[in-house]
């Protein structure tokens, strides 16, 4: 069976890359938050349980396929029910499922607990960029817009693609390491989703509503994510870049933010857009501002 062979190779290599530093090819990216770690382990657990059942069930099936064939002179038996085995293979799976649900429940409750934040940041999805608003904690008042930084030429194949093709932005989010960050999400036009795999965070940004989630990165570094909800033409082109830095570096970044010109400009631009949007909403036409309509309409 080439297939199960490949499956085995895949699983073996994913287990091997458990602690690999490089971005994984076969499994989740290396987790840098407690939650992402739990998710990683949950997935491995699920994979192993499913694999064991799979091998068990198809072991039996293929044994039968090879041995109980007519060409090998097999004569068909005639049984067609057996209450005992039927009860067993109903009850045992239930027990296995309970075993899976238990750790998952714990993780869910932890993920959903957004209390006790050190810093609160609001992220707003726009077609097709992210706006960030530091609401509370160190850095309060910082606002900027974060756009894709990959040049058009790379996308259209006129230039060599860079290492972080499509995963780089002009103004990354900066947060201090080891601090609990509460993230509020909303959107201005259509639904977007803020996703950074290494944090185990994916949360839809829904226009007109605020949703929250949280993360606490344990390791400094640059972590990259993408918008994960189809949001129109440039859905593939609104990445997320988070720089997790030391407390000192963070303070320095905050101090440096004040006079930064482009951010303020960008903010003004966003403000104008929000205004136009509210007008549109007044006509009960949220999300139909002209610029976002597809061409030809």
């Amino acid at each position: 069976m080439s297939l199960s062979g490949r499956l085995a190779v895949a699983v073996a290599s994913s287990l091997a890359s458990f602690s690999a530093a490089a971005q994984s090819r076969y499994n989740f990216q290396e987790p840098v938050t407690e939650i992402a770690g739990q998710i990683y382990d949950l997935h491995i657990l699920m994979l192993i349980i499913c694999l064991v059942i799979f091998i068990g069930v198809f072991g039996v099936m293929f044994w039968s396929v090879f041995h109980h064939r007519k060409s090998r002179g097999a004569v068909a038996a005639n049984f067609h029910e057996n209450t005992t085995v039927e009860i067993v293979w109903t009850v045992v799976p239930v027990l296995i499922l309970v075993g899976m649900a238990w750790p998952a429940t714990r993780t869910i409750l932890e993920m959903k607990d957004t209390s006790g934040a050190d810093i609160t940041i609001k992220a707003t999805g726009y077609q097709w960029k992210w706006g960030y608003d530091y609401l509370q904690g160190e850095g309060e008042g910082i606002r900027f817009v974060s756009n894709l930084a990959t040049p058009r030429d790379q996308i259209e194949g006129r230039a060599e693609k860079g290492e972080h093709y499509l995963l780089e932005v002009d103004n990354p989010v900066v947060v201090p390491v080891g601090k609990r960050i509460r993230l509020l999400l909303t959107a201005n036009d259509v639904i977007h989703a803020w996703w950074v795999p290494a944090f185990g965070v994916k949360q839809d940004a829904i226009p007109g509503f605020i949703r929250d989630t949280w993360f606490q990165a344990d390791k400094e570094g640059v972590y990259r994510g993408v918008c994960a909800e189809l949001c129109g033409r440039d859905h593939a082109y609104m990445p997320i870049e988070v720089h997790v830095v030391s407390a000192d570096a963070y303070s320095a970044w905050v101090a440096q933010q004040g006079p930064r010109q482009p951010a303020v400009e960008a903010e003004a631009e966003t403000e104008a857009e929000t205004e136009a949007e509210t007008e549109a909403e007044a006509d009960a036409e949220v999300g139909t501002s002209d610029e976002s309509k597809p061409a030809g309409v």
């Binding site: 039996v60 099936m61 039968s64 109980h68 064939r69 097999a74 068909a76 293979w89 109903t90 799976p93």
Partner: peptide, 26 residues
Amino acid sequence: TMLIAVPTGVKVFNWVATMWRGSMTF
């Protein structure tokens, strides 16, 4: 959602049990 695995599993097991000790051709 997880519960749905149980009746679906019953089906898979029943198919395998049907093949078991049959006289199969392919």
